[in-house]
Amino acid sequence: MHEIIEVELPSQPARVQHGGEGPPLVFLHSEANTSAWSDFHDELAENFEVFAPIHPGFGGEETPDWLTDVSDLSFHYKDLLQDLNLDRPLVVGTSIGAWIAADLAIHFSALLKGVLLFGPIGLRSSEPLPDLFIMELPEVLSYLANSLDGSQVDPMTGDAELATAVWTDLATQARLMWKRNYDPRLALRAHHAQCPIMVAAGHEDRLTPSAYAKRYAELFGASFTSVDEAGHLVPLDQPAAAAALVNSFYATLEK
């Protein structure tokens, strides 16, 4: 159904999951060991040629020294788009991946057809958001999605390998958002994102309140949709509904 391609980039080699046919779509994954090809990818691959890279420092990789903030990843992915010769792809991101997609749009919107952000983070919140870094790992997963099984990653009783995989992803996330779980420049620069943008948030999101996602949409001049029976990671909780949103958003861009 999909293959892994390796791409040499100035920052570091990228591992990209690749499958499907159609217009190009880049999917930027979420945190806590959720980068693998999933039902959502399969849904996307029915209508798009899907490129789903693994972020540097995620998917079992140690945090790279060169990585300091989310913009480092935007430039990493700009290099990837160019190396793959992707002509104005649709970019879809979820959670930390949505933050990267938003930042990519701020810097390089001319290279993108449109951006769909599922449960984006990275914006300053008036109330502190839950601290994923001090939670037990099962609790982390419960804040992210309804469909993830927290008991598997309990270090004391679950699978030590799986627990370590979630913890290693959180480590790179710590590098990006331990001190501040937002980028103060995001709000100041949102108007530079000139391509069409849509924000979608799970109706049962426990990580960010709906006002937060709406504020995100407002700053980026984006439309906003709420997805029923979904937590923070909408594509994991509702793969079919999330893919349908991608399709309908893409249809509006073709007009």
Partner: peptide, 28 residues
């Protein structure tokens, strides 16, 4: 000290974290 307080993400390499899980299980 709960494990995420004692060993927050990124405090050690992944291999050392696995050792910490073993030690936490031994201590328990």
């Amino acid at each position: 000290l709960p494990l995420p307080t004692f060993f927050p993400p990124g405090y050690t390499a992944a291999e050392s974290y696995k050792t910490r899980i073993e030690i936490a299980r031994e201590l328990a």
